[in-house]
Simulated scan of single mutants.
Amino acid sequence: MRTFIAIEIPFFREIEELQKSIEGRAKLVEEENMHITLKFLGEIEEKLIEKIKKIVEECKVDKFKISLQGVGFFPNERYIRVIWIGIDGYEPIVKMAKCIDEKLSKLGFEREKGYVPHLTVARAKGRVSIMNYDRFKNLKFGEVDVREVKIKNSTLTPKGPIYEDVAVIQL
């Protein structure tokens, strides 16, 4: 099963406005798939889920609040592959992600090179730009009370990924 660990994010009207302002060929992230990835695990055997859940439990922090703010690009503004929204108050996310990454490396998972918490809103399939970029570049999109972390299964389909909860860990 293709799996990742994430924090689900509600779909704010401002995110929809940003997505509608993207010009060019881009695959928009669906409303129901908005999340911040803590760790992408890739293809794993189902028997590993309990060990992974235990690691997430060991690494969890108290519930916290984040703000979705500003727009950025991977790898950079001149060559856009991913359009994302930044996270203000991301320290607890980084703390959990580093802990999960370290403990999962002992199970043979590859270590992250440089974790940057972000909310992906679109993936470029060619040249893209954002109409009225100045309006969005520092915009506050919304606040989120983070109360849980999920282990999710991702099934790839021609219409896009379908995500299912495998485990929910309360903070």
Score class of each variant (00 low, 15 high):
residue 91 E to H: 11
residue 126 G to M: 10
residue 123 R to E: 10
residue 94 V to Y: 01
residue 107 L to F: 05
residue 117 P to G: 12
residue 82 V to F: 14
residue 111 R to W: 13
residue 87 I to L: 13
residue 87 I to S: 14
residue 87 I to W: 10
residue 110 E to W: 01
residue 120 T to M: 02
residue 106 K to C: 01
residue 96 M to R: 02
residue 99 C to L: 02
residue 91 E to W: 00
residue 126 G to L: 08
residue 120 T to Q: 04
residue 105 S to I: 06
residue 101 D to H: 02
residue 111 R to K: 15
residue 91 E to F: 05
residue 104 L to P: 09
residue 104 L to G: 12
residue 130 I to H: 11
residue 94 V to R: 04
residue 107 L to P: 08
residue 118 H to Y: 12
residue 119 L to V: 10
residue 96 M to T: 00
residue 110 E to T: 15
residue 125 K to E: 15
residue 110 E to G: 09
residue 123 R to V: 04
residue 87 I to E: 11
residue 85 I to E: 12
residue 103 K to W: 00
residue 82 V to H: 10
residue 116 V to H: 15
residue 81 R to Q: 12
residue 98 K to M: 01
residue 77 E to L: 07
residue 113 K to V: 14
residue 107 L to K: 06
residue 94 V to K: 07
residue 85 I to W: 02
residue 80 I to D: 10
residue 88 D to K: 14
residue 118 H to C: 08
residue 106 K to P: 00
residue 107 L to E: 05
residue 93 I to Q: 11
residue 80 I to C: 06
residue 86 G to D: 12
residue 95 K to A: 03
residue 79 Y to T: 06
residue 117 P to C: 03
residue 120 T to Y: 01
residue 125 K to A: 06
residue 120 T to R: 01
residue 106 K to H: 05
residue 92 P to I: 14
residue 82 V to E: 12
residue 105 S to Y: 03
residue 114 G to Y: 13
residue 82 V to C: 15
residue 97 A to W: 05
residue 99 C to R: 00
residue 112 E to N: 11
residue 129 S to M: 14
residue 88 D to M: 07
residue 79 Y to C: 00
residue 79 Y to V: 01
residue 114 G to N: 14
residue 95 K to M: 07
residue 90 Y to V: 02
residue 89 G to V: 11
residue 123 R to Y: 08
residue 85 I to D: 10
residue 110 E to S: 13
residue 91 E to Q: 11
residue 78 R to K: 15
residue 105 S to H: 05
residue 118 H to A: 04
residue 126 G to F: 13
residue 119 L to I: 09
residue 103 K to H: 06
residue 103 K to T: 06
residue 111 R to S: 10
residue 115 Y to M: 02
residue 90 Y to D: 10
residue 102 E to N: 10
residue 91 E to P: 06
residue 130 I to A: 09
residue 82 V to K: 11
residue 83 I to K: 07
residue 131 M to R: 14
residue 114 G to A: 14
residue 120 T to W: 01
residue 92 P to N: 12
residue 90 Y to F: 09
residue 99 C to Y: 01
residue 98 K to Y: 03
residue 97 A to R: 01
residue 125 K to P: 04
residue 93 I to M: 13
residue 102 E to Q: 09
residue 126 G to V: 05
residue 113 K to M: 04
residue 96 M to E: 07
residue 121 V to C: 00
residue 79 Y to M: 01
